[in-house]
Amino acid sequence: MAVTSVVLLTLVAVPLSALVLTVLRASSDAIVRAATDPRTLAACALSFGASAAAAFLCAPLGLAVAWSLARWDFPGRRVLDALIDIPFALPTSVSGIALTALCAPTGWVGACFVPLGIDLAFTRVGIVIALLFTGLPFVVRTVQPVIEDLPRDVEEAAASLGASPAQAFRRVLLPSVLPALMTGTTLAFARSLGEYGSVVFIAGNMPMRTEVAPLRVLAHLENYDYVSAAVVAVEMLVASAGLLLAVNLVQRRLVHRGTSNA
């Protein structure tokens, strides 16, 4: 008991209070300046927008992948299942340089888009691709077990009542999967907001255009501007905490009825 408390205090609680204290001790001027710095605002807006875009793409793609893995038997299913965890297993700097190499105009994927006049690397599109990479496993791994546990007889009941497969999916299966899908998407979103390693290489980091919020923290630190760095950090924390809270509230409304497996 004592060991646990001491570790948690020194390793988590004290550092966190350092963040809060740094902001509290700073003059309100400095806080406002840091919070409203146009470069920071642009970075936060980009992080939020790109994370949202990635999350909304992750949801249908993740659902499709989770559905395939949970419901169907096909050659290579086990391999596909194992591949989902790649973003968890690779250090972010490794995935960062790999994604950049792929999406650069000379890369395997980037080259395909050159004739279309689309640049992937060093643009916002590249940032979204990197966030898709880090976010997808969150959606798949949250939704997959729920799909695996969908009772078979409920589907059969829908069919016996005359529902087409599409009707059964939309009216019966999707509502059961929706809470998990929302959770997974939110986890991907929250993770994306703070994502650094897989993004910095592909982003190009141009001020006001392709600079993400975590990079602002680093930039402030390089200037020994601890207050500004702390303010950006607090903004990021508030955004992701708010997001998780909001989804929790919505979820509670959605699942208040489905507590037992009727």
Binding site: P15, L193, G194, P214, M236, L237, S240, A241
Partner: peptide
């Protein structure tokens, strides 16, 4: 739940110059 960059920042705020 904390961004890796923020995690690092916490320790700079504590022990940095």
């Amino acid at each position: 739940a904390v961004s890796p960059v923020v995690s690092g920042l916490l320790f700079v705020l504590l022990f940095g110059a």
